[in-house]
Computed example of a mutant assay.
Amino acid sequence: MTGETTPRPAHVLVTGAARGIGGAVAEEYARVWSGLDGPDVGTLTLVDRDGERLAETARTLRERYGAHVVTDAVDLTGDDAPAAAVARAWETTGPLDVLVNAAGAYPSIDMLEVTVAGWDRLFALNTRAPVLSTAELGRRAVAAGLPASVVHISSGAALRARPGGGPYAATKAALEMATRAAALELGPHGIRVNAVSPGFVPVGSDVNPVTPEYAAAVSGNPLGRPGTPADIARAVRWIAGPEAEWITGEVLRVDGGSSTGAAHLPRLWPASPTSASSPSSAG
């Protein structure tokens, strides 16, 4: 048919892609693309500050799935680094269709131990970097008249603090509001911005280690197991993709139901056969 054009290959940028959830998101796209027809379905641009681990991840995706992968070793806490990473990807590989902001840190910092440097660095990585990379993508997509999709990785901590987790929780609460604000302003330009909020997902990180005691305490949820990076990666690909094209400004909780309530708490009083039909004195 005359006038037909070949769709350009998809271009997905994932930050924090050397390991953990970011690495799983990259693998999810590579896995799905490997099953599609066509010589060049898409390109992955993987960003992480750990260049050595990033190269290993890229090599694995190429060998396992035949993926087309570009790597960019970047410390996203630098003032200009997030926007520059998006700019390099756009200029060298082509317009971005999807930006997944998975880079982050979750140190344990008690409120009595907070310092200016520690607070600022955590916000620089967990909140400022996703906002700046989204803004750069937005500027370029609007100028080119192209749609795009952004997914931030948030956390259940955005809704509920824990001892030693106050600064981290604050970064994620701010990120969720930034998600809604960006969705509001960029939506008219065809740019969707959403977040995926994982529950407890062990990733075996040597950067952000989790004690066995903590893991045991937070693993309980209605579905009875902790999450996996692949659980989160599938949700990211779905909400970034065409099947979710009328969804923006949302936070998708992927947590095995742990945000539904506190199932670990005891009953206020023992259950009895008549308790369901007997109103309480406070009713």
Rank of each mutant, 00 (worst) to 15 (best):
M1G: 14
T2M: 14
P7N: 08
G16I: 00
A18K: 00
G20L: 01
I21A: 01
G23C: 00
V25F: 03
A26F: 03
A26M: 09
E28Q: 04
W33Q: 01
W33I: 04
P39D: 15
V41F: 04
G42H: 08
T43A: 11
T43Y: 08
L44V: 05
T45F: 01
L46G: 00
D48K: 03
E52G: 12
R53Q: 15
R53L: 14
T57K: 10
T60A: 15
T60D: 12
T60K: 13
E63P: 08
L76Q: 10
L76Y: 04
G78K: 05
G78C: 11
D80K: 13
A81N: 03
A85E: 02
V86W: 02
R88N: 11
R88M: 12
T92Q: 14
T93C: 08
T93F: 06
L96W: 04
V98A: 01
V98K: 00
V100T: 00
G104A: 05
Y106W: 13
I109R: 12
E113A: 13
T115P: 09
V116S: 15
G118K: 02
D120Q: 14
R121I: 05
L122D: 06
F123E: 03
L125M: 06
A129Q: 01
V131C: 08
T134K: 00
G138H: 02
R139M: 12
R140A: 07
G145Q: 13
L146C: 05
L146M: 08
P147V: 04
S149W: 01
R160K: 10
P163K: 11
G165W: 02
A169H: 05
A169R: 04
A170E: 02
A174D: 00
A178C: 11
A178E: 05
T179H: 04
A181C: 15
R192V: 02
N194I: 00
S197V: 08
P202T: 12
V203I: 15
G204C: 10
S205D: 12
S205H: 09
N208T: 13
A216T: 12
V218I: 07
G220H: 13
P226M: 09
P226V: 14
G227K: 04
T228Y: 09
R234Y: 09
R237E: 01
W238P: 06
P242H: 11
P242G: 13
I247E: 03
E250T: 14
E250H: 14
G257F: 10
S258Q: 08
A263N: 13
H264K: 14
W269T: 15
P273V: 10
S275C: 13
S277G: 14
S280F: 12
A282D: 15
